[in-house]
Design a protein around this nucleic acid. Structure first.
Length: 438
RNA sequence: GCCCCCAUCGUCUAGCGGCCUAGGACGCCGGGUUCUCAUCCCGGAAACAGGGGUUCGAUUCCCCUUGGGGGUGCCA
């Protein structure tokens, strides 16, 4: 069966994750079936639609890899067709003009519901039915002559050859109207699938007010698109087994509307973060570097830094950050002498009995090594520890804090090698001067 | 108010009458590995909303209650 889906957002603000997931499911369903995924910009609300919103929308879709087929259709260009459909309904007596509600604004065109129950089969919810009494007539063309959402939506879906309408749960009730409209216009009725809503941590639906629910913000925070994609897919759908971290190809292959749940699901930022870390760890060095580079440049830390040095530092950081942003705090010491000393780490490792003496002897030994390489440095340090009759950790910790200011980080010896002899010795000396008076 | 939808660990979910002493994941707690952190490994606490049916047998089917959500615009 040929499949055509569409994503039909109205560009009236930032794209939040609820919309994003609708787009993802439409995209997946089409790609799975080898069908078409179309984009329609529902910009009929001239008051609220903005070019910036359209741009933001397109950017987010590209970021997430939701490529659409053909050109985007702007609904505002289709007004003629919408009005023509209304005329047809008027002529056949399936619609009428009236000053609904006696507003005095003039006459609107109202669709006459057929006076019988409307039934359709939702791909997710099953058979849905609404009695005639619960389906009043409704406006399809405003008194100012502009077509209403319902009319435009239905006419354009038919025009685009949409076979499967996959949208949010908030459209379930509209579907009864849409089905009736399509029947009256003698248009082919697509299959419908209504996705459960995504709710926030309070269990409430995401509104424009929920600050951190915008797709673009996840991007800004350093989330990987494949991680957000994977996470969002799992909100309401599962492959039926225990798989969770899946490649896009795998998801496309497995995706199926049958397995979509019909209960709302709550977004869990912690699981998203974990998912992101999973993808971060699997990232090729080049991509990891590019993500980190943006953050580090923004923080002004990469000026005059050699590419090879940057690469070696990032190679050590890879797999240790959950979000690109974290690299600023965790790897700044690679690029500046003005790195921050974590007070807790200083107290625990430097302001300690013997720490100063340890630093002194490490500095001395490190100053004598021929090649400043990880393996050599480790040998030297461990030998020194043996001589002193202490555990290597007693030496390792103070050195780590001295050269990085942090109590955590990559393996010490690899780190030292990358930093290089001069930096390391200077930093140890400086730490002794600062924390070891006398 | 009325109409519609939904209901398994804190969260995302598996389960489509017996395989369930309900499985996995995130998070949490404990332990191990490691120079730290992270990773990794092992272990633990944690759920079928309540009540009626149907059935030899219900998490699974039906009804009611409760609780969520959606709709009820000349918004989309």
């Amino acid at each position: 069966m040929n499949v055509t889906t569409r994503f039909a957002p109205s560009p009236t603000g930032r794209v939040h994750i609820g919309n994003m997931r609708v787009a993802i499911y439409n995209w997946l369903f089409a790609r799975h079936a080898g069908g078409r995924f179309l984009l329609r910009i529902e910009d009929t609300d001239r008051e609220r639609s903005t070019p910036e919103a359209v741009r933001g929308l397109l950017e987010v879709m590209e970021w997430l890899g939701l490529d659409y087929d053909g050109e985007a259709l702007y609904q505002s260009q289709r007004v003629e067709a919408h009005l023509e459909a209304a005329e047809r309904l008027l002529r056949s007596g399936k619609a009428y003009r009236v000053d609904k509600g006696g507003t005095g604004r003039g006459e609107a065109v109202v669709f006459r519901m057929p006076g019988r129950a409307i039934v359709f089969r939702d791909e997710i919810k099953g058979a849905l039915r609404k009695e005639a009494d619960d389906l009043p007539d409704f406006v399809i063309v405003r008194s100012d002559g502009s077509p209403v959402f319902h009319l435009a939506n239905v006419v354009d879906d038919a025009y685009m050859g949409v076979t499967h309408v996959i949208r949010g749960d908030d459209h379930v009730e509209n579907t009864f109207r849409h089905v009736a409209l399509m029947e009256a216009l003698d248009l082919p009725i697509p299959r419908y699938a209504h996705l459960p809503m995504i709710v926030n941590a309070q269990g409430k639906p995401y509104s424009k007010r929920d600050g951190d629910a915008y797709a673009a913000q996840f991007r800004e925070k350093g989330y990987l698109p494949e991680a957000l994609f994977n996470y969002l897919v799992l909100l309401g759908w599962s492959p039926g087994d225990d798989r969770e971290v899946m490649s896009r190809e795998e998801i496309v292959r497995l995706f199926d509307l049958d397995r979509v749940r019909s209960a709302p699901s709550q977004m869990d930022p912690r699981k998203l973060l974990w998912m992101n870390a999973e993808y971060m760890r699997a990232l090729p060095l080049e991509r990891f570097m590019e993500g980190c580079r943006k953050e580090l440049v923004k923080a002004g830390l990469l000026e005059g830094v050699e590419e090879d040095y940057f690469r070696r530092a990032m190679d050590l950081m890879r797999g240790r950050v959950k979000l690109f942003r974290e690299v600023v705090a965790d790897a700044a010491f690679f690029f500046t002498e003005d790195y921050h000393f974590d007070s807790k780490a200083v107290r625990k490792r430097l302001l300690r009995e013997g720490a100063c003496e340890h630093l002194r002897s490490v500095e001395e030994r490190f100053g004598q090594v021929e090649t400043f390489a990880a393996g050599v440095l480790e040998d030297v340090l461990r030998t020194l520890a043996d001589e002193k009759g202490i555990k290597a950790a007693e030496l390792i910790h103070p050195v780590r804090v001295a050269v990085s200011g942090l109590g955590h980080g990559p393996g010490l010896f690899e780190m030292l090698e990358v930093l290089g002899r001069q930096r390391v010795l200077e930093r140890i000396r400086r730490a002794r001067r600062t924390y070891c008076e006398g």
